[in-house]
């Protein structure tokens, strides 16, 4: 089933406040990502900026967790399948109060708890060690089965990328989730149209992605993944269904690499984006100007 989130009804004051809260969190997380990138002089900053609204929507608005007790047994799980997006995940974990903001400066350094590619054994709040792509959704299926078997109402969110739709294992998991009627499972796909060797459609075409997921028996929505409003509306649609249906859910999130920083948005798309030393402050200034400009409208 494919649908676009309802936008004709005027949002409630409560919804407007939630959107603003997520937007502010995403804005702060983008600053964190730029700061981490500058310390390293490199990193997957483009992906972190592009996906910040997805992380913020889930961590700020949806996920049930205890910052002081990241291993709380009944928590909702957020699985980062794309290990290299760790920079964005750390920013979200800092926003969530799970990782201290002051620790972000250690990103990618020797002996840091925040390695370049996300690993569960290093970082509180990191549920799995991603990075070998196409694993996350298979593990998420097991977690969803395990939590349900043990009578928990916890939900499982798996963040993956459009490039991971190349992996056969992702589709094994997609079939398994439908077969086992895992209504407690939501996949969030960052459709940034970019993978290591170039544009996704030139590497291995994955469209029409909505039809693929829908035909695998998933409740499928495709939204502007840089719109907090669209993301929350989609997540609300899923939350409304949770417990009433066995269909797993997927949100295909169309995002822009480097989102929020025009200098990077306009730069030639690259999996590993180069940013010169003098550009980091320009990036921060552009990010702030864009957020302030939007906030003042």
């Amino acid at each position: 089933m494919t649908l676009t989130p309802e936008t004709t009804v005027a949002p409630s004051p409560d919804f407007t406040a939630r959107v603003a809260d997520v937007e502010r969190s995403a804005y702060r997380a983008r600053h964190f990502a730029l700061n981490m990138g500058e310390v390293q002089g490199q990193g997957y900053v483009g992906q972190a900026l592009g996906s910040a609204d997805i992380f913020a929507s889930v961590y700020r608005d949806q996920l049930r967790f205890r910052p002081e007790d990241p291993h709380w047994a009944d928590r909702d799980r957020f699985l980062l399948s794309t290990g290299h997006y760790a920079i964005g995940h750390y920013a979200a974990l800092a926003e969530a109060g799970i990782v201290p903001v002051t620790e972000l400066d250690t990103y990618g350094s020797d002996d840091s708890r925040l390695p370049m590619s996300g690993m569960a054994s290093y970082t509180p709040g990191m549920e799995i060690s991603g990075g070998s792509l196409g694993h996350g959704l298979t593990v998420a299926v097991g977690m969803a089965l395990g939590m349900r078997l043990q009578g928990s109402s916890a939900r499982i969110f798996n963040f993956l990328s459009d490039g991971e739709l190349d992996e056969g294992s992702t589709w094994e998991a997609a079939m398994g989730a439908h077969h086992h009627q895992l209504g407690n499972l939501t996949a969030l796909v960052d459709m940034n149209a970019l993978q290591a060797d170039g544009a996704t459609e030139t590497v291995l075409g994955i469209e029409p992605a909505e039809e693929k997921w829908a035909s695998f028996g998933w409740y499928t929505q495709r939204v502007d993944g840089n719109s907090a409003q669209a993301l929350l509306a989609a997540l609300d649609n899923i939350a409304d269904r949770t417990g009433t249906t066995g269909e797993p859910s997927v949100i295909l999130c169309d995002t822009k690499v480097g989102r929020g920083v025009p200098l990077l948005e306009q730069r030639e798309k690259a999996h590993f984006m180069r940013i010169e030393e003098h550009e980091w402050q320009i990036c921060r200034d552009q990010l702030t100007a864009g957020y302030d400009g939007k906030a003042s409208v």
Partner: peptide, 28 residues
């Protein structure tokens, strides 16, 4: 029967899902 899970002819899913179940405290 309630503790048995048929994962289909999908070995990557079999082992990934077994890992996920173990993460929730089960012994697959």
């Amino acid at each position: 029967p309630d503790r048995f899970f048929q994962m289909g002819m999908a070995e990557q899913l079999l082992l990934g899902a077994a890992a996920g179940m173990a993460e929730t405290g089960l012994v697959p």
